[in-house]
Design a protein around this nucleic acid. Structure first.
Lengths: 163, 163
DNA sequence: CTTATTTTGTTTCCTAGGAAGGAAAAATAG
DNA sequence: CTATTTTTCCTTCCTAGGAAACAAAATAAG
């Protein structure tokens, strides 16, 4: 296995492990709510005036998919929709009290994960930190150039988050 | 954004970009074959005496899902199945000539990707390389300990590959 | 050997989400 | 202003894949 494969493969493995562990704890704390729902709740709480379109962009999903999830969250009373008086097309969402409670649980969990892994990050040196970011930066630029070379202007899909 | 978030977020972004670019080229070269099919073909070509169970493990999918894909690949004449004379339960798969052709295209593409990115990896220093692997190793061990602490014995899911 | 347990593979049922089409509102062109 | 184009949202249709139930074969236990 060469350097390239080694770095990529072991990082992928690490990510998978992290995602799996966090997902596990997440499901434990937020039983009854599906990952996609929690994810939407998170972004409704974070974004400014979120609507279907904004959420779809932020979550790298289609507007159709988001539309369906919003419908469910509305039915469950987790979110509510509102419109601006001068616009009859765009529909915005905000969290209800119940939604905020879920948002809070999610946020706390996120912080808990950070604390849990803090030891690992505290012990990396600035040199290591710079080395990693430098590599990422290089590779990313290289890929951007390749993408440009291919004439592909679109944005890549985002993997599911794993907080 | 702290170190932890920065490293994780930028790596994730890099991975997404890489996956997106490669997927794009892959679909271009292997039009008519679905990603999951190509993925299965890859592993049927690589594994020793693959059967539904082995493939499911290797691809982190359920046996049910693999079973369905095998059915399709058989119908398309991309693979063929065989059994051992002394075992009437286990069913193994091998690539047909057509299957091998697809395997070859996939493999070539994989090599092409390596060459394309070789410049980036050639220029990382041994120090950088060690720093990254060291970090990954540390973090991975930390997570293993956490998983053990939780008493979760199972393996994490694997993300889809992106060669 | 006979019986119980485990392994292997298949099928059925169900859900998430993408693609595509369509309707209504808004923005732009003329 | 009216006509066209674009944006926003929703719905219908379809597919991939997981869960679970099951059958057949193999293995283990007695």
């Amino acid at each position: 296995m060469n350097k390239e494969e080694q770095v990529i493969a072991s990082f992928r493995e690490l990510f998978n492990k992290l995602a799996w562990l966090n997902k596990f704890k997440m499901e434990e704390s937020l039983k009854g709510y599906k990952p996609s729902e929690v994810h939407c709740i998170e972004y409704i709480g974070k974004l400014e005036e979120p609507n279907v379109t904004r959420l779809a962009e932020a979550l790298y999903m289609t507007t159709g998919a988001i539309s369906k999830i919003m419908k469910k969250l509305l039915e469950k009373g987790i979110i509510e929709s509102y419109q601006k008086p001068d616009n009859k097309k765009e529909i915005y969402f905000r969290l209800t009290e119940q939604g905020n409670a879920i948002f809070k649980i999610h946020e706390d969990l996120h912080n808990e994960f950070q604390e849990r892994d803090q030891a690992v990050f505290a012990q990396i040196t600035d040199r290591q930190f710079e080395a990693m970011l430098g590599f990422i930066e290089n590779y990313s630029r290289h890929l951007d150039a390749e993408i440009k070379k291919q004439g592909l202007g679109m944005k890549p899909e985002q993997a599911t988050e794993q907080k």
